[in-house]
Design a protein around this nucleic acid. Sequence first.
DNA 1: TTTTGGCACTCACCCTGCCCGAGTGCCAGC
DNA 2: GCTGGCACTCGGGCAGGGTGAGTGCCAAAA
Lengths: 339, 339
Amino acid sequence: MLSERRLEVLRAIVQDYVGTEEPVGSKALTERHKLGVSPATVRNDMAVLEEEGYIAQPHTSAGRIPTDKGYRLFVDRLAGVKPLSTPERRAIHNFLDGAVDLDDVVGRTVRLLAQLTRQVAVVQYPSLTRSTVRHVELLALAPARLMLVLITDTGRVEQRVIDCPAPFGETSLADLRARLNSRVVGRRFADVPQLVQDLPESFEEIEDRATVSTVLATLLETLVEEHEERLMIGGTANLTRFGHDFPLMIRPVLEALEEQVVLLKLLGEAKESGMTVRIGHENAHEGLSSTSVVSVGYGSGGEAVAKLGVVGPTRMDYPGTMGAVRAVARYVGQILAES
Amino acid sequence: MLSERRLEVLRAIVQDYVGTEEPVGSKALTERHKLGVSPATVRNDMAVLEEEGYIAQPHTSAGRIPTDKGYRLFVDRLAGVKPLSTPERRAIHNFLDGAVDLDDVVGRTVRLLAQLTRQVAVVQYPSLTRSTVRHVELLALAPARLMLVLITDTGRVEQRVIDCPAPFGETSLADLRARLNSRVVGRRFADVPQLVQDLPESFEEIEDRATVSTVLATLLETLVEEHEERLMIGGTANLTRFGHDFPLMIRPVLEALEEQVVLLKLLGEAKESGMTVRIGHENAHEGLSSTSVVSVGYGSGGEAVAKLGVVGPTRMDYPGTMGAVRAVARYVGQILAES
DNA sequence: TTTTGGCACTCACCCTGCCCGAGTGCCAGC
DNA sequence: GCTGGCACTCGGGCAGGGTGAGTGCCAAAA
């Protein structure tokens, strides 16, 4: 177990390194922080911290920098979540109010987060499976061609074109539309499959049954597809503030960010409730091994419908970032609840 | 007027520089290209080309690199558009077939373009004003709250929540929906304003008129808003291949790419028909002064509904890039026409 | 008039050796 | 257990010399 003072030294190292981006030595530490001990003592403490794997030296005779393990300890035990300042809070409101639709909300959120944290922001669209159905619309584009439009309570709209096996009358269409809606509106998407499974049988005409089956198949497919998970990223220009070695770091990170699958997995791995911080190599993806990901769920009610977060260098201001991420998530939740 | 051989020298310089990314000297030129003259002659030609502003030296006693003006001449007079190879053509088809909706088409296109050109790809969503109306849907979310859903022939879907001044009956709603659709379906969005301007008067109830006005106002607003112009970008990881000085270049470019407004203006400035190539400082935006933008319109019919293109270093393979951009645009047009 | 070979010149780049200073580890003393 | 002192290490910055690609110019050849 590390003594109180050693923890204090670690905290000081993390704070200084985050601020200066340079390895921090014992002398500088005692000057900037009131530790009440001499550099020599700090050196001894540092030696212990290094032995335990919390800090490391880039090379002999350089200062120390925190390791992933060091940041982990810092986040878990040494740092709180810094609440936002009033201007920042006001900025969130100003920025997010006045969004006209879901795309707009997500777009604004991503820009806001990027600006606030000065890092790369990632915002997931509300998940279909955790939303409820607001309306299902069926339009005849041609006699044997339908368009299915799904609208969720979170404002998300999905559409698919369906090629039907046989022409489908306007009456049957209205009928199907009505039955479909009466069954699923207000229900959660996750429950939809079992709510509609007997629909085809309730139609008399054989051709109609076939068409109904096709429609339902498309509907269900729309619900389960991985494609349903969309997200938006922004603030990639902040990658250039990664540090002096950014030319080396930036490429794998950009590549990882381009792979939506990777990002979705990243967010998916985060805890369902509360904030998640994944530091450096804790991230499964190779290219992100020198980044940290701070993510949190957001939603209109108590329940999270999706996640959002930021990706930045492991050397980031954790308290501030966590504060911004949490504040934004809360307010986006409110916005969604209102619309 | 430059002699034939001097043009040939310029072409050789551009080709070599694009390939090697290094200033090209007279000796290397005569070795790699069969110019039929000695290095000394080439040197004289280079001196002339430099005087005319087509090439420049980074510093005394280095080779020459093309200037923006040099690239311009190269693109206009010296280079054709390189047709794609069969595998590339097949890749386009494989990649783009099987897209389920418009988002998917745009997303795949952007990834495809980025991969093919190894540069940053930008794809604009089909413009609303140039599309035709496929359907207008009005849903009652609450007695005095409607959702307006617009569907275009290009598969684009826009929605807006409308707060009405007064409750609106289901009958009136159906009535409005029917009238709206009968007037605008199949028409171009640009024509919608004048097609619906007299709608409010045709309703008897005063309250209904107010609501109808509100709905129409929202509808028209949706059409004209700058917000209607959406786009998607991808392949930003390719920025890391910008050249040795990429750390300096990448930030302004990333910043410019984050500003959708900038990109929209960029595409907007391009010619309506045919391919547009803007080289270096020809781009209005400061941050893009060392990039070139190759863009072209695409659409389902003969008419362009939106544009797509790539952003890359001025030192790019123009013939290849132009070939890829054109080929992709053509095929996306086909896809849209089919759906 | 144009092309060519020759020649002196100019830099960017690389390698080397050097010094400097920040930072360390260790040890003896408090 | 803390502190001050001291020798040691090593990265970074700076100056200097060599190298080579590339140039401009000029006189001779085509």
